[in-house]
Design a protein around this nucleic acid. Structure first.
Length: 120
DNA sequence: CCCCTGACGACGC
DNA sequence: AGCGTCGCCAGGG
């Protein structure tokens, strides 16, 4: 075995960037939400938050990434249109306990999950 | 190889 | 507080 050190998690290493994004997104606790910028900042604030959202769209079906738990810094469900249905994202969030009003997360500030702080 | 778009964010007015 | 613009990085045509 040895396995040396390659700690590969089933193909999550598409590029450090995408892989990290998927990992963090998968770590988001149920009932909590985070923002694209927060993930970007956690990775090193080197890339724009746009890359994070982009990574979500590039998520293969193999990866179960709760992209619905990721919203923009306003708590707005900007990516809801990418779930196949414009209401799918909201439905999933509400199902997990996250109230969504007007395509926006209620108490977003309170439900915000910061990877750099919680994950630390 | 050049141009444009894209699930964002911060700043300026 | 709402709207507009620029910046960032990468992929697609």
């Amino acid at each position: 075995m040895t396995t040396t050190k390659s700690n590969k998690k089933d193909g999550s290493d598409r590029s450090n960037f995408f892989g990290e994004v998927y990992e963090v997104a998968k770590l988001i606790p149920k009932g909590r939400v985070t923002s694209y910028g927060a993930i970007a900042q956690y990775l090193g604030t080197r890339m724009s938050a746009r890359m994070v959202g982009w990574a979500m769209n590039a998520v293969p079906r193999n990866q179960k990434v709760p992209a619905h738990r990721v919203v923009n810094s306003q708590g707005l469900l900007t990516g809801k249109h990418h779930f196949g249905s414009p209401t799918a994202m909201q439905q999933m969030l509400e199902k997990e306990g996250v109230k969504v009003v007007n395509d926006k997360v209620a108490d977003f500030k309170n439900k915000f999950w910061n990877p750099s702080q919680e994950l630390l």
